[in-house]
Design a protein around this nucleic acid. Sequence first.
DNA 1: GCTTAGTCTGTGAACGCTCCCAGAGATTGT
DNA 2: ACAATCTCTGGGAGCGTTCACAGACTAAGC
Lengths: 340, 340
Amino acid sequence: MATPGARPRRATIFDVAAEANVSRGTVSRMLNGEPYVSDSAREAIEKAIAKVGYVRNMAARNLATQRSKAIALIVHEPHSVFLEDPNIGAILLGTNERLSEADYQLVCLIIGSDRDSARIADYLRGGFVDGAVIVSAREHDPIADAIAHIGLPAVFVGHPMSAPDMPYVGIDNRGAARDITRELLSTGRKKVGMIAAALDRDSGSERLAGFRDALGDQFDENLVVDFPLYSRNSGVEGMKALLDRAGDIDGVFAASDALAAGAMDVLRERGRSVPGDIGIVGFDDSDWAMRCQPQLTTVRQPADLLGREAASMVLELVNGITPETPGRILPTEIKLRGSA
Amino acid sequence: MATPGARPRRATIFDVAAEANVSRGTVSRMLNGEPYVSDSAREAIEKAIAKVGYVRNMAARNLATQRSKAIALIVHEPHSVFLEDPNIGAILLGTNERLSEADYQLVCLIIGSDRDSARIADYLRGGFVDGAVIVSAREHDPIADAIAHIGLPAVFVGHPMSAPDMPYVGIDNRGAARDITRELLSTGRKKVGMIAAALDRDSGSERLAGFRDALGDQFDENLVVDFPLYSRNSGVEGMKALLDRAGDIDGVFAASDALAAGAMDVLRERGRSVPGDIGIVGFDDSDWAMRCQPQLTTVRQPADLLGREAASMVLELVNGITPETPGRILPTEIKLRGSA
DNA sequence: GCTTAGTCTGTGAACGCTCCCAGAGATTGT
DNA sequence: ACAATCTCTGGGAGCGTTCACAGACTAAGC
């Protein structure tokens, strides 16, 4: 009887070598796709692998090669945001897909509380992963600092100003915000406000900057409200505040679709029609946008591609390829629907 | 300038031992919290670790101990579902949180296409993880079979009939569905239908069974429609179909909130009031429920706790503790809101 | 026929840790 | 005073790979 938990001994490279009548060096070379393996050896090894049911022991390989074939995805958000944010899931999927193609694994590091961040830093230092993709880092994020300090290859999704030299992929938040605000203005709105959020991130502050760009002289600080999170609830509070400050407001740029959805709920409650009385535009093109009534005019950002691209970049870094550009900007697109 | 990728040599347990004037055996014992380490040795080692900046090399440890301190989270869903399903994210967070507490890592394995499933099976066989939490397995899922075959400690979230002996955590889908259907009936509805989905999962088929339980003799197969996915879109199609089949239908149990939301959109479009003309109830208590107008009466399922509990169980299994019960059922709760 | 280059193979030495055993020293009981 | 026990320590062996090197054999060039 086997002792509890004792699985049968797994076949090693030695077993394969013995079975195929070659040395383990040859097996190793073949496994790693190196040249200089004769056809006869290759064939014998293939048969032997199938026969003994061999699979590589990753721990041994990692130890010998000093790399882990794993990439961390670091999400620094409270849990509620992780669940609500439509982009994080898509980024995760995109990253995972690209890494799978390269036979790398994705290790999720979700930092819910700041208490975790020291633990995570230790983990990253532990050589457990070869690189990291960092989603939604705040400005002056301790994790970002730790990574820079360790020298771990890492790519940011988004571009924190506090880490200007780190590789990143992102979108032109400022330009996109400017364009969609202009779109809103082009429908003849005269008094346009913004529900901003997450100004401690580049995405948040850049979108506000773009809004300001579009308005130019007409920009009125009093018509901007801001909140820590891109949440529906902030949208509710934001819209209420804007209506209090200027009852005759006729256009709102919400920095995310969730904010816009919250705002629209308030407007419905108060009997203001959209887009009749007030035009409203959002950002993300998440499923919120389709669920609104009317559907939301918004900026589509390719979240899955951001993930893919970040993965590609981090793989390049890991393999010693320095990207020709420090950052990559992916295109956005305005989706015209009924809300403005 | 360092050559690309060449980070400075990291301190090993030898360096610590030398610095502290003890042997590496003692350092190892201390690191693993074993008894028989004198206070003086302990103190010296602590100082030495701080001085040389030592962190454990996990690959070496994994190789020596034959375990990886990592658990896989396997999600077998098309990507669209991964993003839409409100429970998956919460399960992921719950699992991650529990594993972190035990100093285990979460490795995400997302199986988008069936093509991946062989690759994943190989990975699981590779000793890369000590156990697995399986989310949303289908009946007769090839991955589930592979895991059973490998003998990897694994816990299902949900309880596929095709793997009755595997440990699982879940909710009483059937009982909860019965209860909420009764709730709907108690509002005086006479002609009640169901939009079912995912009948190839235990959650889907059990909810249908619960609905049937509640209706008893009044059950009418003609008033049940079913779809592959718990999606809003299926809700739209489902509601249309039900209205076609029975224009005088006055109650609907939707097997998920997303389905219910789709159904309610159709009803609004067709000018039927909720809950006036038709009562509607959902399942999940996801954010869909709060976004509906009126808000949805639904079954709250503790998705994060499911994740936590699954993680706890898999950790027990990994440590050779056989759980006293093969499965654990977590309580659900009916959330009364305005929709029925 | 001899060098040279190119192809292929086997083997010792890491990689950094844990496990286990032998043994030193301190403490207790008789 | 001696055995028995408990506490603590050091170091050899092993985990399953990869890597680098040395050597064998083959083919081509002069």
